[in-house]
Amino acid sequence: MGTDVIRLLDIRETPLSLDEVHAAVGDSAAGGIDLFVGTVRDHDGGKGVTALEYSAHPSAVDELRRIAEKVAADFPVAALAAVHRVGRLGIGDIAVIVAVACPHRGEAFDACRRLIDTLKHEVPIWKHQHFADGSSEWVGSC
């Protein structure tokens, strides 16, 4: 599979759309589409969270593309999409959506998990958590 299966990659300040990502990975060769949505939760490490701020290095989209290309090379991907939000997000807001379409569901699950796990570990996006007690902390990669 080539890079033509990568249908949508972006890092943006505007709200993310499940419909946009799902539509991007629609493909007649796909028997399974796996979609992961990461949202802002109201707690972390036993502390109440009130908001998050994400920021990204200018190379983040290039790193996201590198990861997407690797996933597309390692799995029988028919279509792939990944978008991450930056800026200030509130509780319940969508922070990241990744989706992978493959001929079979097992492949789609495995490819999607690899995509989100690698994104979280390798794409230079940082999370600044704001807690209910007034404190805050930076978290390495989101």
Rank of each mutant, 00 (worst) to 15 (best):
M1N: 13
G2C: 12
G2D: 15
G2P: 11
G2K: 15
T3V: 04
T3Q: 14
D4Q: 13
D4W: 10
D4L: 10
D4M: 14
V5S: 15
I6W: 11
R7M: 14
L8A: 04
L8F: 01
D10W: 02
I11T: 07
I11N: 11
R12F: 04
E13F: 02
T14H: 08
T14Y: 03
P15N: 08
P15D: 04
L16R: 00
L16C: 02
L16G: 01
S17I: 14
S17L: 15
L18H: 12
V21G: 06
H22F: 07
A23S: 00
A23F: 06
V25W: 04
V25A: 03
G26C: 11
G26K: 08
S28G: 10
G31F: 06
G31E: 07
F36D: 06
V37K: 08
V40E: 01
D44V: 09
G45I: 04
G45N: 03
G46Y: 02
K47M: 06
G48S: 08
G48T: 05
G48C: 12
G48N: 07
V49A: 04
V49I: 10
T50S: 07
T50K: 03
T50A: 01
E53I: 07
S55W: 00
H57L: 06
A60L: 05
A60N: 03
V61Y: 04
V61K: 09
E63H: 13
L64C: 05
R65Q: 06
R66P: 00
I67M: 08
E69V: 01
V71G: 05
V71T: 11
V71I: 14
V71C: 07
A72V: 05
A73V: 00
D74Y: 08
F75P: 01
P76S: 15
A79T: 10
A81Y: 10
H84M: 14
R85T: 14
G87N: 06
G87S: 02
G87C: 07
G87L: 01
R88Y: 02
I91F: 08
G92T: 13
D93Q: 02
A95S: 13
V96N: 08
V96C: 07
I97Y: 03
I97R: 04
V100G: 01
V100Y: 01
A101K: 02
A101T: 11
P103S: 09
H104E: 09
H104R: 14
R105W: 06
E107V: 00
E107T: 00
A111S: 12
C112F: 11
R113V: 02
R113W: 04
R113G: 02
L115A: 07
L115T: 01
I116Q: 15
D117T: 05
L119V: 09
L119I: 00
L119G: 05
K120Y: 05
H121L: 05
P124A: 09
I125R: 12
I125N: 13
K127V: 11
Q129K: 10
Q129H: 07
F131C: 01
F131T: 02
F131Y: 08
A132T: 15
A132L: 10
A132V: 09
S136C: 07
S136G: 12
E137Q: 15
G140D: 14
G140Q: 11
G140E: 13
